[in-house]
Every structure is written in structure tokens, then in C-alpha cells.
Amino acid sequence: MTETRSSDAPEVVTINKFDGAAAKNAIDDAIREVFTGDLKCKESFALIDGRLVLCALAVGVALYALLWDYLYPFPQSRLVLIICVSSYFILMGILTLYTTFKEKGIFVVAKEKHGNGMRIWEASSYVKKHDDKYNLVLVMRDSNTGKTREASVIKSFANFIDVNGVIVQSIVTSEVTKLYNSLLNEKKEK
């Protein structure tokens, strides 16, 4: 549970490189650090906070139902239980929609000031099951022009992780910076 910043002494992250989920999470974390560190962006937590609120509401509803049923045993608590159970499953549905259509695997939203406007960067990633290909999608939204640009890269985990399972931060940084610059330049050309 340590908050890591690339300005601190670089922490060596060793993972089980054959565990796809762990490798993906570690690279996600490394990319987040690139945005908050080298690229001097400010991370926006609105997206993940939204999900946390939904989860907390669902768990709260379940706890309330449990407490109410304990205080007023079943036949009395029927109405409250009906309300709690249906709202719980509705909340679960909303949560599923939220993660599939709003979050879409976005693991960092970073805001960058430029001039008098804002650039918003959204990085999302996905890895197919039993696959070593890490798909990174970077989306840039410019609040001045209102335009959206997208760039993506597909690389094997092997490009980012060394033989001991340590994430090579410098390679991640250069890869992200390359994408970042390509999006910025693309904008200037037009």
C-alpha cells in the first residue's frame, strides 16, 4: 500500500512474469508513474472513485438488509428485503455497465495544463487470456479544440519485463513518451 512516485528512489518491482494479470497490473502501474512523474501530469481519480462509490453503495445495501433482517426477523422485514435485494441487483447491473462502457479498462486519467486549456490523457490496456501481448491504448482529449486523438501499441510483456521479472521502467517510459509525442505531433501537423 505504498504510494510510489518516480521522484522517490526507484523501487524495484519484482513480479511473477508468467502471471498475466500480475504482469499487466505492474506495467499499468509503471505507465501511471510515467504520467504522474516524467510527464508532469496530474492524475484525476473521478473515474475510479465513481466505481468505488457504486461498490460501497452495493455493500452498504447488503449490510443494511442483513442488519434489518436481524432486528426484525423475516416475515416482518419482507418489504425492506424486497427493496434491498432489487436495488442491490440493479446496482450490480449499473456497475457492470460502468466498467464495460465507461471505464473500458482505463487505468489512469491524467490532466495536463497547456496554455489556458487542458489536455486529458486516458490510458487503457488489455491482455487476452493466455496471451503475452500487452495492448496499450492512449487517448488524448484537448479541451481547447474538443478533439480526440488515439494511438495504440501492441507489445509482448517480454519487452517491458526482464528475465528476473523486474519491470524495466526506462523502456516503459520511452515507449509511453513515444506515443505521447506522436499524439502531440499529429496535432501540430493538422
Binding site: 468505488l52 461498490c55 452495493a58 447488503a62 442483513l66 433482517d69 434491498c84 450490480m92
Partner: peptide, 18 residues
């Protein structure tokens, strides 16, 4: 929270059956 949701899902299915 996601651990909590696994437990609450089971609980809510049970209460729903009730």
C-alpha cells in the same frame, strides 16, 4: 470492496430466495 461484494452477492441471493 470486491471481497465484500462476493459475500454480499451470496447474501442477497439468499435473502431474495427468502
Amino acid at each position: 470492496l470486491s471481497f465484500g461484494m462476493i459475500v454480499s452477492s451470496a447474501l442477497m441471493i439468499w435473502k431474495g430466495l427468502m
